[in-house]
Design a protein around this nucleic acid. Structure first.
Length: 952
RNA sequence: GCCAGAGUGGCGGAAUUGGCAGACGCGCUGGAUUCAAAAUCCAGUGAGGGCAACCUCGUGUGGGUUCAAGUCCCACCUCUGGUACCA
């Protein structure tokens, strides 16, 4: 095999690694460990996409490098295999989703192996494996068994929850119901999208404008009993512990914003009879508890981040779902309120948000009394206030909140400024207008119209108001989070069944009590179903299971199984733990192994999981940590998000309806059309689009134009790869044509890992050329057998050759450790360019180079390693060491500048002193000629960098 | 609107702490080899000017700091991604 032939050597080495279990990882680390994890893929029917190997190659290089540096490397792969597409397929074909799922996994595995990744395949898991989801269910029972102790800021066993005397007095059932209120996993009514026509519950993405995506049938929102996870209790820790992980700042901020901590105050506005206000207030002040934990019916409690603006609260708004709506509505407003609330309830969350341009509301007819000044303020009902945030009610301060301002203007409500924007730097703020109530000012300033608080800065005023509210019992400091509890159930078949049993009474009806399935009885497998079609009731498909499954009898007691299933997130929340101990049948992970391998040292995946997956996984991890099942507070030490790979550049011109060419900068690609066009782009203006090839265009004056007609301007665009666009690059084809090593190297050479970058097939060929050159540098491609190039000799290297080698080792080592793979590959190219020109290529140096290449292009490296006379894999060879003294050149070039412009270059020894540098510069002919007729003002000489003469 | 990131040759991209802008690759041009082509090897390739040595300009735009700015500061423009009434 004389020529470089990846089609032959790649399968050969893949088989070798598999047969010899080259990448089998020891149960326990030997020496230093490193755990490198990829976000495991959802095995879709489309197979691998070129985006997958980007991250996977990055981690694989890292692993191969550290293996050669002597670390124990854990590098596993698995499949996030529950998911909607498999279920849709099952409904259509009436085959169990497990069948198509396993077929897809087989295809994914084949493709992954084809790329030569050094996974320990013995650790492969799929979230759909019964042996795996057995432990997903077990973790759910842990969540179910845990309550959050706010004093300790920690999850504790439910058995340690102290039960109030009055509850325990009511008996066992009351105690159980009380406990259920505190569990991290709890049942609650949540709204679902119910489509009667399709007979099924739809996900939010499946509902468009209140109609089903499929068929366009009406969708109504109805409450359904569903599982929730109390992630909100962990908000504080999820926020704080971000400080301890090495993640991109942007991702941390995204998570932090999602958690959305804000602080302010809760304030009670009196809504009882007006005359009772004074009595109520003095009662509050004199009571021992002052501000009660739960408000009674005589007050409307609000949350505000600006208690300093309390004097400017000219009205209140409660959400249409607020429990006080009915109570606060007066007879003459009843009709208007009723129709308003009904309209609001029919709107989906999304529709409500779409309406944001125009705020709507209706007056309830009632008033509340502002506790700080006794002012009577009207209470409105408006859907711009969300029931799920804060208390579901607000005090509206139109002068200093843009939403309240818009609302007040629309409905003619009084606007009272209470913050003077005095020294606001924003030129858009007009103080006079603000003070006249004609402009909204939401920033900090100085209190006015606020009685005793006048003149205080916003910050001081806030503190003082809170202190006063505290002492008179009408308010209290409060913290809120945007984060909501996690809706954890899905009305789907293809997911993990909940390990929960509902108790039935004598009539066979659930009595509201439930219990978790015993650990010994796990897993709860999915039942066999005759078909997967919707059954027409607003209930999950598992309700179609036969009675054997649905109604288990334990100790003579009949139960009904929970029929919801878990969301896809469940399996991906803890897979990184199971990889450490994938076949353990005694527990979800051996604690000794967990301690030895955790945390994950490097986690690489797409940014689309920046918030939810990572937040959910961190939450589960913290619960497991609190309950003593894992040893680290955070699961993922370092996180890197790979950038998206776009399709190839496409070039096109546009013609308007009259057939005239439209300048490229006046054309906008339509986002909607981008989902639907195939090969042809659509524009927002619906111009006719004419595609061009790269050869037909050129750039003139910063604009692409048609070569044949410079008056036609051409737009260039690289778009997200998608099937409908027809710009998807299939890794199978790339491997077929160029080889896996080329694909790996190309994806790493495209640019920084984190960056979005367009595919370019020509450049792939360039990488293939580089590997061919590397091959020829060492091998004789004209020979029949595996013969070394005649230039490769057992000779001692020259100084220059040695320097080139050591510089290369240094650069590649540094770049590999920092994931700077694109520049590492550039250094390999320089190395090959250099040695291709050398007529003697010392074998010792060639061997070192092959080791440097190995993590990046392992197949060709193994082949060359063997050709150089080695009989075993190079996967565990020592990574080449460099001698720093050998990386330095004998002389270096120093630029000499006059007034910052380079006029000459001189050669000096590294480390030449300032004075010597200056002297050397002055003695340069050209420089001395220039310096002879000018006045030198200043000389800057930086050793090893440059010399600059500032002259007049 | 808000938040984050990014604008460097024809293209993808290099450039420790401010210190030779354009490494490396693609593309293109020329040459060698060949009957010819492919492949390969060698050389050139930011723009403008000059016969030439060389000169001028040049990192989205406009200012600024500095002996020196792709890098630091201010303002703006464009693109990409995320987000959406969170009081």
């Amino acid at each position: 095999m004389p020529r470089y032939n990846p089609a032959e050597i790649e399968p050969k080495w893949q088989t070798f690694w598999e047969d010899n279990k080259t990448f089998l990882t020891p149960e326990m680390p030997e020496g230093e460990k490193i755990y490198v994890l990829d976000m495991f893929p959802y095995p879709s029917g489309n197979g691998l996409h070129v985006g997958h190997p980007e991250g996977y190659t990055a981690t694989d290089i890292f692993c191969r490098y550290w293996r050669m540096k002597g670390k124990s490397v854990l590098h596993p792969m698995g499949f996030d295999a529950f998911g909607l597409p498999a279920e849709e397929h099952a409904i259509k074909t009436n085959t169990p989703p497990r069948e198509s799922t396993e077929k897809n996994i087989d295809e994914f595995r084949r493709q992954l192996k084809m790329l030569g990744f050094s996974y320990d395949w013995d650790r492969e898991i799929a979230t759909t494996d019964v042996d795996y989801f057995r432990w997903t269910q077990w973790i759910f029972t842990v969540l179910h068994d845990t309550w959050f102790d706010h004093t300790e800021q920690k999850g504790r066993p439910i058995s340690e929850l102290s039960i109030p005397d009055d509850v325990s007095a009511e008996g066992e059932d009351s105690v159980r119901r009380y406990q259920d209120e505190f569990r991290l996993a709890y049942l609650d009514d949540a709204l679902v999208n119910w489509c009667a026509k399709l007979g099924t519950v739809l996900a939010n993405e499946e509902v468009i404008d209140g109609k089903s995506e499929r068929g366009g049938h009406p969708v109504t929102r109805m409450p359904l009993r569903q599982w929730m996870l109390r992630i909100t209790h962990y908000a504080e820790r999820l926020e704080n512990d971000l400080a301890d992980v090495n993640w991109p700042e942007g991702i941390k901020k995204l998570q932090s914003d999602w958690i959305g901590k804000s602080s302010g105050a809760e304030v009670d506005f009196f809504i009882g009879p007006e005359n009772d206000f004074d009595v109520w207030k003095s009662n509050r002040e004199s009571s021992a508890t002052k501000f009660p934990r739960k408000p009674a019916g005589d007050v409307l409690r609000v949350y505000t981040t600006r208690p300093d603006t309390l004097f400017g609260a000219t009205y209140m708004v409660i959400s249409p779902e607020h429990p006080f709506v009915e109570k606060l509505t007066t007879a003459d407003q009843a009709e208007a309120v009723k129709s308003y609330c009904e309209a609001a309830s029919n709107k989906s969350d999304r529709d409500r948000q779409d309406d944001k341009k125009e705020k709507t509301g209706v007056f309830s007819g009632s008033y509340a009394i502002n506790p700080i000044n006794g002012a009577k303020v009207p209470i409105w009902i408006g859907d711009y206030v969300l029931i799920s945030y804060g208390t579901g009610a607000i005090m509206a301060v139109p002068a200093h909140d843009i939403r309240d301002f818009e609302f007040a203007q629309k409905y003619g409500i009084k606007i009272v400024p209470v913050v003077d924007p005095k020294n606001a730097k924003d030129p858009a703020i007009d103080s006079d207008k603000v003070l006249a109530g004609e402009q909204c000012f939401a920033k900090h300033g100085v209190a006015i119209n606020s009685g005793q608080y006048d003149g205080l800065s916003t910050k001081e005023c806030k503190a003082k108001v809170i202190a006063d509210l505290n002492s008179n019992g009408t308010g209290s400091e409060a913290v809120n989070y945007k984060l909501r509890d996690w809706l954890f159930s899905r009305q789907r078949f293809w997911g993990e069944p909940f390990p929960i049993l509902h108790e039935l009474d004598e009539d066979g009806k659930p009595n509201g009590l439930m219990r978790a399935v015993d650990v010994a009885d796990l897993p709860v497998d999915l039942p066999h179903l005759e078909d997967y079609k919707p059954h027409g009731r607003p209930e999950p498909p598992l309700a179609k299971a036969d009675d054997d499954w649905l109604y288990p009898v334990i100790d003579g007691k009949k139960y009904r199984r929970e029929t919801n299933t878990m969301p896809q997130w469940a399996g991906s929340c803890w897979y990184y733990l199971r990889f450490i101990d994938p076949t353990n049948s005694e527990c979800f992970i051996d604690p000794e192994k967990e301690k030895a391998w955790m945390p994950v040292d490097l986690y690489v995946g797409g940014a689309e999981h920046a918030v939810l997956h990572l937040l959910y996984a961190r939450f589960w991890h913290k619960v497991l940590f609190d309950r003593g099942h894992v040893s680290t507070a955070e699961p993922f030490q370092q996180l890197v998000n790979q950038g998206m790979i776009l399709g190839e550049y496409e070039y096109f011109g546009s013609k308007d309806s009259d057939g005239n060419w439209v300048p490229a900068d006046q054309v906008k690609i339509s986002a909607i059309a981008a989902e639907t066009f195939s090969k042809h782009i659509k524009t927002e203006e619906n111009f006719e689009v004419i595609g061009f090839s790269k050869e037909e265009i050129e750039k003139v004056g910063g604009q692409f134009v048609l070569k044949s007609d410079h008056s036609v301007s051409v737009k260039a665009t690289a778009e997200k790869m998608s099937k409908s666009r027809g710009n998807v690059i299939n890794p199978d084809i790339v491997v077929d044509e160029y080889g896996a090593d080329t694909l790996r190297l190309y994806e790493m050479f495209m640019g920084p890992l984190e960056q979005t970058k367009p595919w370019n097939m020509d450049s792939v060929g360039g990488i293939r050329n580089f590997l061919g050159r590397a091959w020829r540098m060492i091998m004789d491609e004209n020979a029949d057998g595996m013969t070394l190039n005649v230039a490769v000799k057992d000779e001692a290297p020259s100084d220059e050759q040695l320097r080139t080698l050591h510089k290369t080792i240094k650069a590649i080592s540094n770049d590999t450790e920092t994931l700077g793979y694109n520049t590492a590959i550039a250094r390999m190219m320089e190395f090959v360019n250099f040695f291709t020109r050398e007529t003697v290529r010392p074998k010792s140096i060639m061997k070192q180079f092959v080791l440097l290449l190995a993590p990046y292009a392992p197949h060709i490296a193994e082949e060359l390693w063997a050709a150089l006379g080695n009989s075993n894999t190079l996967a565990y060879e020592n990574w080449p060491e460099y001698d720093d003294s050998l990386t330095r050149d004998a002389t270096i070039e120093i630029p000499i500048q006059i007034k910052g412009k380079i006029k000459a270059k001189i050669q000096v020894e590294p480390g030449t002193s300032k004075a010597d540098l200056e002297a050397a510069a002055r003695s340069n002919d050209k420089i001395s000629a220039i310096l002879s007729d000018v006045e030198i003002i200043k000389v800057i000489a930086v050793p090893d960098k440059m010399v600059n003469f500032v002259v007049k």
